[in-house]
Design a protein around this nucleic acid. Structure first.
Lengths: 129, 129
DNA sequence: CTTGACCTTCCAGTTTACTGGAAGGTCAAG
DNA sequence: CTTGACCTTCCAGTAAACTGGAAGGTCAAG
């Protein structure tokens, strides 16, 4: 697969793939005889994994760490396991933080819902925001 | 409270408070006769709220939206409620994304835990990372 | 009455994650 | 055999969220 095709399949851009290669999130791609990058199909899945991590608020560095562990497959190394444990703890903390924030926002919403919507003229843009 | 004191109480810096004021996340502070900013004690809580939002991966713009809704108190306006509903949906999506990611990382961890830790010489730095 | 720890404004630099654009090579289609 | 849509490298710019530093004002303590 060529770069543009791969990028489109993963919902991103060719520029971004080159950038990820540069940052080590994608392995250096094979080249066709004409010099074009040639990607295996599984790169699409890898890009989707990166996108999910980004959506979840992980940095490229964090995602890169996880991917490099995945890449070496069966890794008995204790350092690798420690890193994964740390990643799990970080993810748990982040999820807890978001959950608490959600509760707070839900309170604001309930308070706002208690007001009378008719007090706001639907023709006008809300003057508060 | 002066700026440094307020910042310290919230675990941040005076620089950051001025920056937040500039971005509209903090109301323009009152000034003492000497020109120093004078903060009420509740600013600490507001800063903690901002920090929680940042930790959870919200942008300052998103946090600012939530705060401006909170600031107007009882807001019956339908636009405000729509915005809060959207924030809740966004938070739910982000939590779901993170939870899925956590499950994937847990799989990596279980796979790594299946290996033999003795295969890694504890004297050496892990060659994989 | 000076030292040091505060504070003020303003402007420039940093990091992260792209994004745009120049200058040029490749190749299937008309 | 040229046009257009790809691709290549390289370098510069952008947005977000700070962070640092210069130049100078304020004020309690020694």
């Amino acid at each position: 697969m060529r770069i543009g095709e791969t990028a489109a399949a993963a919902g991103t851009t060719a520029k971004t793939l080159r950038f990820y290669e540069d940052r080590g999130l994608l392995p250096v791609a094979d080249r066709a005889p004409n010099g074009y990058r040639d990607y295996p199909h599984e790169t699409v899945g890898r890009l989707e994994f990166i996108r999910r991590g980004r959506t979840a608020g992980l940095t490229l560095a964090q995602i890169g760490d996880i991917l490099s562990i995945r890449d070496i497959g069966q890794a008995p190394c204790i350092h690798v396991r420690d890193l994964l444990v740390k990643q799990l703890r970080d993810l748990d903390a982040q999820i807890a933080e978001l959950t608490a924030l959600r509760a707070t926002v839900a309170e604001f919403h309930d308070a706002a819902a208690a007001g009378d919507p008719a007090a706001c003229d639907p023709e006008r843009i809300c003057s508060y925001l």
